[in-house]
Design a protein around this nucleic acid. Sequence first.
DNA 1: GCGACAG
DNA 2: ATCTTGTCGC
Length: 236
Amino acid sequence: MNTSTAAAIPPLPPDWPADVAAARAVQDSLRARVVLDEAGPAPGGGRVTGVDVAYDDARDVVAAAVVVLDAASLDVVEEATAVGRVAFPYVPGLLAFREVPAVLAALAALDTDPGLVVCDGYGVAHPRRFGLASHLGVLTGLPTIGVAKNPFTFSHEAPGDARGSATPLLDGAEEVGSALRTRAGVKPVFVSVGHRVTLAAARAHTLHLTPRYRLPETTRRADALCRAALREATTA
DNA sequence: GCGACAG
DNA sequence: ATCTTGTCGC
Protein backbone atom coordinates (compact mmCIF):
# COMPACT_ATOMS: atom_id res chain seq x y z
CA MET A 1 0.00 0.00 0.00
CA ASN A 2 1.05 3.54 -0.63
CA THR A 3 0.93 5.55 2.56
CA SER A 4 1.63 8.89 0.86
CA THR A 5 -1.35 11.14 0.27
CA ALA A 6 -2.16 12.91 -2.97
CA ALA A 7 -2.33 16.68 -2.60
CA ALA A 8 -5.57 18.43 -3.55
CA ILE A 9 -5.59 20.72 -6.57
CA PRO A 10 -6.56 24.22 -5.34
CA PRO A 11 -9.46 26.15 -6.94
CA LEU A 12 -8.64 27.60 -10.35
CA PRO A 13 -7.74 31.31 -10.33
CA PRO A 14 -10.56 33.74 -11.23
CA ASP A 15 -8.81 34.65 -14.46
CA TRP A 16 -8.65 31.04 -15.65
CA PRO A 17 -9.55 30.95 -19.38
CA ALA A 18 -13.11 29.83 -20.05
CA ASP A 19 -12.64 29.03 -23.71
CA VAL A 20 -10.15 28.47 -26.50
CA ALA A 21 -9.85 32.13 -27.45
CA ALA A 22 -9.12 33.18 -23.87
CA ALA A 23 -6.54 30.42 -23.47
CA ARG A 24 -4.72 31.51 -26.63
CA ALA A 25 -4.71 35.08 -25.36
CA VAL A 26 -3.06 33.90 -22.13
CA GLN A 27 -0.35 32.13 -24.15
CA ASP A 28 0.27 35.21 -26.26
CA SER A 29 0.61 37.21 -23.06
CA LEU A 30 2.94 34.84 -21.19
CA ARG A 31 5.21 33.82 -24.05
CA ALA A 32 7.25 37.01 -23.68
CA ARG A 33 8.51 35.74 -20.33
CA VAL A 34 10.23 32.66 -21.73
CA VAL A 35 14.00 32.85 -21.17
CA LEU A 36 16.10 31.34 -23.95
CA ASP A 37 19.58 32.73 -23.24
CA GLU A 38 20.58 30.66 -20.23
CA ALA A 39 22.77 27.56 -20.50
CA GLY A 40 20.77 25.82 -17.78
CA PRO A 41 21.82 23.10 -15.32
CA ALA A 42 24.78 20.87 -16.27
CA PRO A 43 23.55 17.56 -17.75
CA GLY A 44 24.28 14.62 -15.48
CA GLY A 45 24.38 16.62 -12.24
CA GLY A 46 21.98 18.00 -9.66
CA ARG A 47 18.34 16.97 -9.73
CA VAL A 48 16.00 16.23 -12.61
CA THR A 49 12.26 16.01 -12.11
CA GLY A 50 9.76 14.20 -14.28
CA VAL A 51 6.13 15.33 -14.48
CA ASP A 52 3.17 13.55 -16.03
CA VAL A 53 -0.61 13.56 -15.82
CA ALA A 54 -3.30 10.87 -16.20
CA TYR A 55 -7.03 11.34 -16.77
CA ASP A 56 -10.41 9.75 -16.26
CA ASP A 57 -12.52 12.15 -18.27
CA ALA A 58 -15.69 10.18 -17.68
CA ARG A 59 -15.37 10.82 -13.96
CA ASP A 60 -13.78 14.22 -14.44
CA VAL A 61 -10.70 13.21 -12.45
CA VAL A 62 -7.10 14.17 -13.10
CA ALA A 63 -3.95 12.95 -11.33
CA ALA A 64 -0.49 14.48 -11.64
CA ALA A 65 2.82 13.09 -10.45
CA VAL A 66 6.26 14.61 -10.05
CA VAL A 67 9.30 12.44 -9.41
CA VAL A 68 12.62 13.98 -8.39
CA LEU A 69 15.71 12.01 -9.40
CA ASP A 70 19.37 12.41 -8.58
CA ALA A 71 20.73 13.06 -12.07
CA ALA A 72 23.96 11.14 -11.54
CA SER A 73 22.47 7.91 -10.21
CA LEU A 74 18.90 8.30 -11.50
CA ASP A 75 17.74 7.22 -8.04
CA VAL A 76 14.43 8.59 -6.78
CA VAL A 77 14.92 11.40 -4.26
CA GLU A 78 11.30 12.36 -3.70
CA GLU A 79 7.82 11.92 -5.20
CA ALA A 80 4.53 13.79 -4.94
CA THR A 81 1.08 13.52 -6.49
CA ALA A 82 -2.00 15.71 -6.78
CA VAL A 83 -5.59 14.79 -7.63
CA GLY A 84 -8.59 16.91 -8.59
CA ARG A 85 -11.02 17.96 -11.29
CA VAL A 86 -10.10 18.35 -14.95
CA ALA A 87 -9.52 22.04 -15.66
CA PHE A 88 -9.69 22.14 -19.45
CA PRO A 89 -10.54 19.84 -22.38
CA TYR A 90 -7.80 18.55 -24.64
CA VAL A 91 -7.32 20.96 -27.50
CA PRO A 92 -4.20 20.65 -29.69
CA GLY A 93 -2.00 23.61 -28.82
CA LEU A 94 -3.64 24.15 -25.43
CA LEU A 95 -2.43 21.07 -23.57
CA ALA A 96 -0.90 23.18 -20.80
CA PHE A 97 -4.29 24.35 -19.57
CA ARG A 98 -5.24 20.74 -19.05
CA GLU A 99 -2.08 19.75 -17.20
CA VAL A 100 -0.65 22.76 -15.40
CA PRO A 101 -3.03 23.09 -12.42
CA ALA A 102 -2.45 19.49 -11.38
CA VAL A 103 1.31 19.67 -11.94
CA LEU A 104 1.68 22.89 -9.95
CA ALA A 105 -0.17 21.29 -7.03
CA ALA A 106 2.13 18.28 -7.11
CA LEU A 107 5.25 20.44 -7.35
CA ALA A 108 4.06 22.49 -4.38
CA ALA A 109 3.96 19.32 -2.30
CA LEU A 110 7.69 18.70 -2.77
CA ASP A 111 10.26 19.40 -0.07
CA THR A 112 13.14 19.04 -2.53
CA ASP A 113 14.25 21.53 -5.16
CA PRO A 114 13.12 20.05 -8.53
CA GLY A 115 16.17 21.18 -10.47
CA LEU A 116 15.50 20.67 -14.18
CA VAL A 117 11.90 19.76 -14.98
CA VAL A 118 11.31 17.31 -17.83
CA CYS A 119 7.83 17.48 -19.36
CA ASP A 120 5.92 14.95 -21.44
CA GLY A 121 5.18 17.18 -24.43
CA TYR A 122 6.61 20.31 -26.02
CA GLY A 123 8.20 23.59 -25.01
CA VAL A 124 8.78 26.27 -27.63
CA ALA A 125 7.99 23.74 -30.37
CA HIS A 126 4.43 24.99 -30.43
CA PRO A 127 2.14 26.92 -32.81
CA ARG A 128 2.61 30.05 -30.67
CA ARG A 129 6.00 29.01 -29.24
CA PHE A 130 4.50 28.39 -25.80
CA GLY A 131 3.89 24.72 -25.15
CA LEU A 132 3.46 22.91 -21.84
CA ALA A 133 7.15 22.95 -20.83
CA SER A 134 7.51 26.68 -21.49
CA HIS A 135 4.24 27.43 -19.71
CA LEU A 136 5.29 25.45 -16.65
CA GLY A 137 8.72 27.09 -16.73
CA VAL A 138 7.34 30.61 -16.80
CA LEU A 139 4.88 29.91 -13.98
CA THR A 140 7.49 28.31 -11.71
CA GLY A 141 10.68 30.00 -12.81
CA LEU A 142 12.29 26.56 -13.07
CA PRO A 143 14.43 25.41 -16.02
CA THR A 144 12.30 23.07 -18.17
CA ILE A 145 12.50 20.99 -21.32
CA GLY A 146 9.91 19.04 -23.27
CA VAL A 147 10.39 15.50 -24.53
CA ALA A 148 7.48 14.39 -26.72
CA LYS A 149 6.67 11.01 -28.21
CA ASN A 150 5.13 12.37 -31.42
CA PRO A 151 6.14 15.07 -33.94
CA PHE A 152 2.86 16.98 -33.50
CA THR A 153 2.49 19.27 -36.51
CA PHE A 154 6.20 19.57 -37.14
CA SER A 155 8.39 17.98 -39.79
CA HIS A 156 11.78 16.30 -39.62
CA GLU A 157 14.17 14.04 -41.44
CA ALA A 158 14.81 10.67 -39.82
CA PRO A 159 17.90 10.80 -37.53
CA GLY A 160 20.67 8.23 -38.08
CA ASP A 161 20.10 4.81 -36.52
CA ALA A 162 22.69 5.31 -33.78
CA ARG A 163 21.69 6.48 -30.30
CA GLY A 164 22.47 10.19 -30.04
CA SER A 165 21.75 11.02 -33.67
CA ALA A 166 19.56 14.08 -34.10
CA THR A 167 17.91 16.10 -36.85
CA PRO A 168 16.14 19.47 -36.72
CA LEU A 169 12.46 19.55 -35.84
CA LEU A 170 10.99 22.14 -38.16
CA ASP A 171 8.00 24.44 -38.23
CA GLY A 172 8.32 25.47 -41.84
CA ALA A 173 11.91 26.71 -42.09
CA GLU A 174 12.24 27.48 -38.38
CA GLU A 175 14.04 25.00 -36.12
CA VAL A 176 11.91 24.55 -33.01
CA GLY A 177 13.49 21.44 -31.53
CA SER A 178 15.21 18.14 -32.32
CA ALA A 179 14.23 14.65 -33.32
CA LEU A 180 16.60 12.66 -31.11
CA ARG A 181 17.41 8.96 -31.32
CA THR A 182 17.68 7.71 -27.74
CA ARG A 183 17.81 4.02 -28.68
CA ALA A 184 19.48 2.54 -31.76
CA GLY A 185 16.97 1.67 -34.43
CA VAL A 186 14.00 2.84 -32.36
CA LYS A 187 11.63 5.72 -33.15
CA PRO A 188 13.15 9.03 -31.96
CA VAL A 189 11.76 11.36 -29.30
CA PHE A 190 11.11 15.04 -29.96
CA VAL A 191 13.03 17.42 -27.74
CA SER A 192 12.44 21.13 -27.34
CA VAL A 193 13.47 23.92 -24.98
CA GLY A 194 10.99 24.91 -22.32
CA HIS A 195 12.54 27.69 -20.25
CA ARG A 196 16.08 28.69 -19.18
CA VAL A 197 17.82 25.84 -21.05
CA THR A 198 19.62 25.49 -24.38
CA LEU A 199 18.46 23.06 -27.06
CA ALA A 200 21.86 21.33 -27.08
CA ALA A 201 21.65 20.97 -23.30
CA ALA A 202 18.09 19.68 -23.57
CA ARG A 203 19.33 16.93 -25.89
CA ALA A 204 22.23 16.12 -23.55
CA HIS A 205 19.88 15.86 -20.56
CA THR A 206 17.57 13.62 -22.55
CA LEU A 207 20.43 11.28 -23.45
CA HIS A 208 21.57 11.13 -19.82
CA LEU A 209 18.04 10.12 -18.88
CA THR A 210 17.77 7.35 -21.47
CA PRO A 211 20.51 4.81 -20.65
CA ARG A 212 18.12 1.97 -21.42
CA TYR A 213 14.72 3.02 -22.74
CA ARG A 214 13.44 5.33 -25.46
CA LEU A 215 11.71 7.64 -22.99
CA PRO A 216 13.50 9.54 -20.19
CA GLU A 217 13.61 7.77 -16.83
CA THR A 218 11.91 10.86 -15.42
CA THR A 219 8.80 10.55 -17.56
CA ARG A 220 8.71 6.77 -17.16
CA ARG A 221 8.68 7.16 -13.39
CA ALA A 222 6.16 10.01 -13.43
CA ASP A 223 3.91 8.12 -15.83
CA ALA A 224 3.76 5.06 -13.59
CA LEU A 225 3.11 7.19 -10.52
CA CYS A 226 0.31 9.36 -11.93
CA ARG A 227 -1.47 6.27 -13.23
CA ALA A 228 -1.26 4.69 -9.80
CA ALA A 229 -2.55 7.91 -8.21
CA LEU A 230 -5.45 8.06 -10.67
CA ARG A 231 -6.33 4.46 -9.95
CA GLU A 232 -6.27 5.11 -6.22
CA ALA A 233 -8.45 8.20 -6.58
CA THR A 234 -10.85 6.33 -8.82
CA THR A 235 -11.07 3.09 -6.83
CA ALA A 236 -14.04 3.11 -4.43
C1' DG B 1 -14.49 23.70 -46.59
C1' DC B 2 -11.46 19.33 -45.13
C1' DG B 3 -7.91 17.06 -42.67
C1' DA B 4 -4.12 17.05 -39.04
C1' DC B 5 -3.14 17.73 -34.46
C1' DA B 6 1.74 17.24 -27.78
C1' DG B 7 -1.33 14.43 -24.01
C1' DA C 1 -4.72 10.55 -22.97
C1' DT C 2 -7.70 6.10 -23.12
C1' DC C 3 -10.16 1.83 -24.89
C1' DT C 4 -7.85 -3.38 -25.16
C1' DT C 5 -5.47 -9.76 -26.30
C1' DG C 6 -2.42 -11.85 -27.82
C1' DT C 7 2.06 -12.24 -29.39
C1' DC C 8 6.98 -11.87 -30.92
C1' DG C 9 11.50 -11.37 -28.80
C1' DC C 10 15.45 -10.65 -25.47
